[in-house]
């Protein structure tokens, strides 16, 4: 289908973009790569009045490195991450994730910030960034604020972004060289949205471990017991199963049928194993 009519603006600066978003009585939406938004508009599940195109704003399109952090502009594409254009804070986790995300033609345009800001419950980046303890940078008229990615997504397509604000950047702390990760995406076809998605990160040098479950019809779910177990290293299979089962049972707001429960448990156990295997 074709989208309903809308206005389009491509501001030259962030302040111009914020000004456009602040216009009264206009249902304005930010567009970056448009790989989800335009599809939603074509299906007429979204019909904004004004699109504010930030894809080519200066400073949003590259990743830069500081001592302990990599700073991603919101419009860094999945393909740039896949191709390791720029620094990688994640010992290969982020390039691996990017490679499994949709299709190359989509990855060439879709952006990390767009994916996080849309907060599709089955999307990869909200989980991965929560697992890496990343921070989202939000800019609006009243300045800049930082929100931990683990708290950024609040529901299905719901985030801490308020009207008129733009997610401009994501800070990802660097893993230590010996840190390990696990990533399991279960989908029936390569590139599809996940039926289950688990990211496990273990960085003993920083005393950090976190296991996050996605594709649960809600925000990314931090598996607390599994995370603690992950931090202790290789677990007995029975203890691992018990921790995962306890975490899934505690997620009382999610409705897992037997099939999804089984997928989530399997994905979590596999990701935990990957993250706690001895280095090759």
């Amino acid at each position: 289908m074709k989208p309903a009519a809308f206005d389009y603006a491509r501001p030259r600066s962030l302040s111009e973009a914020l000004e456009l978003l602040a216009r009264p009585n206009v249902d304005a939406r930010v567009i970056a790569g448009g790989q989800s938004l335009v599809a939603m508009m074509n299906l007429r599940v979204a019909s904004p009045g004004l699109l504010v195109d930030i894809a080519r704003l200066p400073d949003l399109g590259s990743a830069t490195e500081e001592d302990s952090t990599v700073f991603y502009g919101a419009c860094v594409t999945h393909a740039m991450i896949e191709d390791r254009i720029g620094p990688d804070p994640s010992n290969g986790l982020m390039p691996k994730v990017a490679e499994t995300l949709a299709y190359r033609a989509v990855r060439n345009r879709g952006t990390i910030g767009g994916s996080l800001a849309l907060a599709d419950p089955a999307a990869e980046w909200p989980c991965v960034l929560a697992a890496l303890d990343a921070t989202a940078i939000i800019e609006g008229w009243n300045g800049k604020k930082a929100v931990a990615c683990r708290d950024f997504v609040t529901g299905i397509y719901e985030t801490r972004l308020a009207a008129g604000e733009i997610l401009t950047a994501i800070w990802v702390p660097k893993l230590s060289p010996e840190a390990r990760w696990g990533y399991v995406k279960l989908a029936r076809k390569s590139g599809e949205f996940a039926l289950s998605l688990v990211v496990a990160v273990r960085d003993p040098a920083r005393g950090y471990a976190r296991v996050v479950l996605g594709a649960t019809d809600g925000p990314p779910l931090i598996l607390e017991a599994t995370s603690r177990l992950c931090g202790r290293g290789r677990a007995e299979p029975a203890a691992a199963r018990e921790a995962v089962a306890a975490d899934l049972a505690r997620a009382a707001d999610r409705q897992f049928d037997a099939f999804r429960h089984s997928l989530h448990a399997t994905a979590a156990l596999r990701a935990l194993t990957q993250a706690t295997e001895a280095a090759a």
Binding site: G34, V38, N42, D53, A55, A79, A105, N108, R109
Partner: peptide, 12 residues
């Protein structure tokens, strides 16, 4: 680079 022409606005 390959891109979906259905998801790309001509205006962009």
């Amino acid at each position: 680079m390959p891109a979906r022409a259905c998801l790309m606005l001509a205006a962009a």
